[in-house]
Amino acid sequence: MEERFPTLREGVRHIVWDWNGTLLDDNHANLAAANHVCALFGRPPVELEEWRRIFRRPLVPFYEELLGRPLTPEEWARLNTAYDSHYRNLLPSCRLADGALETLHTWRGAGGSQSLLSMAAHDHLVPVITEHGLVPHFTRVDGRRYDTDADSKAEHLVDHLAAQDIDPATVVLIGDIDDDAHAARAAGARAILVSTGLMSRERLEETGHPVADSLGEAVRMLLA
């Protein structure tokens, strides 16, 4: 009997999951870290909905626009360190997104494979994934192992799939910002974006990729 796999318009067998804002509900920690940076540089705080309307990659020009002036390399390093330190202090308060575990089990039970790719630093990411007991769900876990001029997930996704010998045409990336959509398109994969993370639904819809309001809905699109 021929083995059947879940499909999205045919052919999808593998999900690459994003972490921050997708499987991990950390909007409050990201916003608090951003406002810590704003305070350091004399900028009024931003509300979550404003942040979801303006956040983007690459990060350096985004923060220069947010703060209203260019940043020297030394200031960018200070900003980056301040953000990361504040975020990590709040990380214990972050929980998995609603339905995350059930959704991972659903996809595996349907015969699909899945991996995780994040723009968080690899050495920081792996202990967190391990602490949540998620490693057995994934064929591979990758954080950011190097920096790129474009500051995009695209090159990282290409390497992530090549390391597993996975055909991009069989892949959907599920993430929460438009860079996830751009990365999938650049790698020859597809994307579904979830509206629960750091970017507004309207901006996600502008990418032309499907947008779901929950992790469960995203996977149901693949199983339909």
Rank of each mutant, 00 (worst) to 15 (best):
H124Y: 13
M199N: 02
D98R: 15
E131Q: 13
L198S: 11
G175A: 09
L222E: 01
L91Q: 15
V171D: 06
L157Q: 07
P58V: 03
T22E: 00
Y63D: 01
A169H: 11
R13G: 11
S214W: 10
T22R: 00
R190L: 01
H28Y: 05
R201I: 02
R56P: 00
G109S: 11
R190W: 00
A100Y: 02
F138W: 09
L104P: 11
L204A: 09
S118Y: 09
A187C: 13
I192W: 00
A34D: 07
L79K: 10
R140H: 12
L173I: 09
D26L: 02
L90Y: 02
R145Y: 04
R144Y: 01
E74V: 08
V141L: 08
L66D: 02
R185L: 13
V211G: 03
D26Y: 01
E65V: 04
L173E: 00
T170F: 01
A110P: 06
D123V: 03
K153S: 07
P127Q: 10
L90Q: 12
R53A: 15
E202S: 14
H36S: 11
P61W: 06
A189N: 07
H209N: 07
H14Y: 13
S118D: 10
T196K: 08
M1S: 14
L71Q: 08
S118N: 10
N30E: 09
T130Y: 01
T103A: 15
T148H: 11
G112V: 06
E205F: 00
A34N: 14
D178T: 14
L66K: 03
L66R: 14
L134W: 04
H137G: 00
H156N: 04
P127G: 11
P210Q: 01
V16A: 09
E217H: 12
